[in-house]
């Protein structure tokens, strides 16, 4: 009998989406933003500055290929031919490896602009907690960046760190947030907030002492929140706060973080992982409007 494949607890759901109220045939400018992150990649297709379709999938070992797959997956949701695309901007860690991009723009600028789009006006600070980095960005109402801080050296507090933990404890990553609140007693003394490797060995020790998975998750979510808080605290928060990236979906970390900061975060119905790609597509749209699009 074949052995069942090992369950991959870190694996989150890849998705694509098409706006039912928009038709690409009516649009003047179709622009694309591709955010190739170290862990996940997104493609956002915009019709005259409105989201027509998007995709969100895991980055493979080859950035160029991941960019192609993301665009195809987003376009699959529509019936639009590929040559209809007017302008494409790449962003994120792998932005220079997007073979079909007309231009690359840093993810700091794209996240600020994209966050304002998906959260609406009023954003003063954007906190992007991605797969391999944490960025805190202060911006004005147009998304112009005034200051930012970034940690891209260390997995503590990042999505990748959370994936490692989900796998270690055997808890599907989408359930981590809820399960961390199921433990109501006093949490075990905090696991390391500075190093995922130390946190792993501490968590293994706690499990051996008989602590439940939920209790260890509570301690780890708190440690992650502390790590993110230390970056946010250094920059300072201008209300209001918009959180982007995959970690925004983890309420175990987010609710603990917000109680440390002492404010509520803004709310959105959009997928928080697409912010960077949205910003990139918007930059492309602005260029097309100014007549600075692709020369045909």
């Amino acid at each position: 009998m074949a052995e069942a494949p090992k369950q991959e607890f870190w694996r989150w759901t890849e998705s694509n989406w098409k706006n039912p109220d928009l038709d690409w045939k009516d649009a003047r400018h179709i622009t694309v933003g591709i955010d190739v992150g170290s862990v996940s990649s997104q493609a956002v297709i915009m019709a005259d500055g409105k989201i027509l379709a998007y995709s969100n999938l895991r980055t493979g070992s080859d950035s160029a290929n991941s960019a192609r797959k993301a665009l195809k997956y987003a376009r699959d949701a529509t019936d639009m031919p590929e040559d209809r695309l007017d302008y494409c901007i790449g962003t994120g860690y792998g932005r220079v490896n997007v073979p079909f991009a007309d231009r690359a723009i840093t993810e700091i600028a794209c996240h600020a602009r994209g966050a304002i789009f998906i959260y609406g006006p009023g954003v003063g600070t954007v906190l992007d907690v991605g797969g391999q980095d944490i960025k805190a960005i202060q911006c004005d109402e147009k998304g112009k960046v005034s200051n930012f801080l970034m940690n891209d050296k260390c997995a503590a507090g990042t999505g990748r760190g959370m994936e490692v933990f989900a796998d270690l404890l055997g808890v599907p990553i989408d359930e981590v947030g809820d399960r961390s609140f199921e433990y109501l007693g006093e949490e075990p003394s905090a696991v390391s907030s500075t190093c995922v490797v130390y946190a792993k060995s501490e968590a293994t020790g706690l499990r051996r002492q008989g602590w439940s998975k939920e209790a260890v998750l509570a301690a780890y979510c708190k440690a992650m929140a502390e790590r993110i808080y230390s970056l946010v605290e250094r920059l300072g928060v201008n209300p209001e706060l918009a959180v982007t990236g995959g970690m925004a979906k983890n309420r175990g970390v987010m609710e603990r973080l917000m109680s440390m900061i002492g404010i509520e975060r803004m709310k959105t119905d959009w997928d928080t992982q697409i912010a960077g790609a949205v910003g990139a597509a918007l930059f492309g749209y602005a260029l097309c409007q100014k007549g600075k699009g692709r020369k045909k």
Binding site: S38, Q132, K153, C154, A155, R160, G161, V164, C195, V196, V197
Partner: peptide
């Protein structure tokens, strides 16, 4: 990469 977790990838 410096971080153990990132260096593994």
């Amino acid at each position: 990469a410096q971080c153990v977790v990132f260096a593994e990838s």
